[in-house]
């Protein structure tokens, strides 16, 4: 059984005031997400990511097509007990404290008072806002609200969790914590479905990704496959060398940029052998600072597919 399945899921919005006309936000999306995997839904703004999540949460209704989660029809109460959801830019009742909010939500899942208290305390500590539990949410920063959002999404120990831009508003520390939380969820067997335009997070976390553009699915695959590209080049940072020395390697270096006195960023073509160059540089007194292969990233993948889709949409005449 698939954790999440959509079949030709389509959503049209009516736009215009007097003469309403449909605008397709999601176009026949067919997806399958395996149980226990972390699945990333990627795409630029307006691609249909949030629409997909809202459809799966039944905050909006599909124009056509269908979807099921854990084999159950979306929107059923039995299903809602088994899933969690973090909306994009979450907002909560600002007159409540974080503890009160989570206690309130826990009561909707039918937890008994003692269990509720224990669960809320544990979650607030887990997302790193245990010290602010009694602070009104109106005093919370965007990042802290995002942490509250993550906590409420996993309050019921869900089997499937939907996260809409989970890293949005988080500082580097918060992003690291959120990544750890998502990986921890997977370790417990939870299926994580998240949308993002922060590709490094998808690269670091996802088993599989799908790319949406203009409401259409343009690519889908395992991240490992997508990232298994040849090395396109090398980036070498070296120190304690002078420009005269660099001219000796002119043919091997495609670009040299001085970033500080005697410190250079050298770009080498993919076919070059950096170890030989490196040996010559160090023999001449230079020091290696870093060496990185330049590979096609998910960002390149993303841009390539979205651009191809935009070209197709413009048609051959343009």
């Amino acid at each position: 059984m698939l954790a999440i399945q959509t079949e030709d899921l389509t959503k049209d919005y009516a736009i215009g005031f007097w003469r309403k006309r449909p605008r397709r936000a999601l176009d026949r999306l067919t997806l399958g997400v395996e149980c226990g995997e972390i699945f990333g839904l990627l795409g630029p703004n307006g691609a249909g990511k949030t629409t997909t999540l809202k459809l799966l949460m039944q905050l909006i209704y599909p124009t056509s097509g269908s979807a099921s989660i854990l084999g159950l029809p979306i929107g059923s109460l039995a299903l809602k007990r088994r899933v969690g959801y973090l909306p994009e830019h979450p907002y909560f009742y600002d007159y409540l404290t974080a503890e009160e909010l989570l206690t309130y939500f826990a009561s909707l899942f039918g937890y008994a008072a003692a269990e509720r208290r224990a669960r809320v305390t544990q979650l607030l500590d887990q997302v790193g806002i245990g010290a602010e539990r009694r602070l009104a949410l109106r005093k919370f920063s965007k990042g802290m609200l995002q942490r509250v959002g993550l906590a409420q999404a996993i309050l019921n120990d869900p089997e499937v969790v939907f996260l809409d831009e989970p890293m949005s508003g988080l500082d580097p520390l918060g992003r690291r914590d959120a990544r750890a939380l998502i990986l921890e969820l997977r370790k417990r067997g939870c299926t994580v479905f998240f949308s993002s335009h922060i590709l490094s997070d998808a690269e670091a976390l996802c088993d599989r990704v799908a790319v949406l553009a203009r409401g259409r699915l343009v690519a889908e695959g395992r991240v490992a496959e997508i990232l298994a590209f040849d090395v396109k080049g090398w980036e070498l940072i070296v120190a304690d060398i002078d420009r005269a020395l660099l001219t000796r390697f002119g043919a091997q270096v495609s670009k040299a940029t001085e970033i500080a006195h005697g410190r250079y960023v050298l770009e080498l073509p993919g076919a070059a052998a950096p170890d030989r160059l490196l040996a010559e540089l160090t023999a001449a007194g230079g020091k290696l600072v870093s060496l990185n292969p330049i590979r096609e990233t998910l960002e390149d993948f993303f841009v390539k597919h979205v651009s191809a889709d935009a070209d197709a949409a413009r048609g051959p005449a343009s």
Partner: peptide, 14 residues
């Protein structure tokens, strides 16, 4: 308007 309903309706309520 404030979208607090998104989190609420994801809970087991109709």
């Amino acid at each position: 308007e404030r979208r607090s309903i998104y989190s609420l309706l994801a809970k087991p309520i109709t």
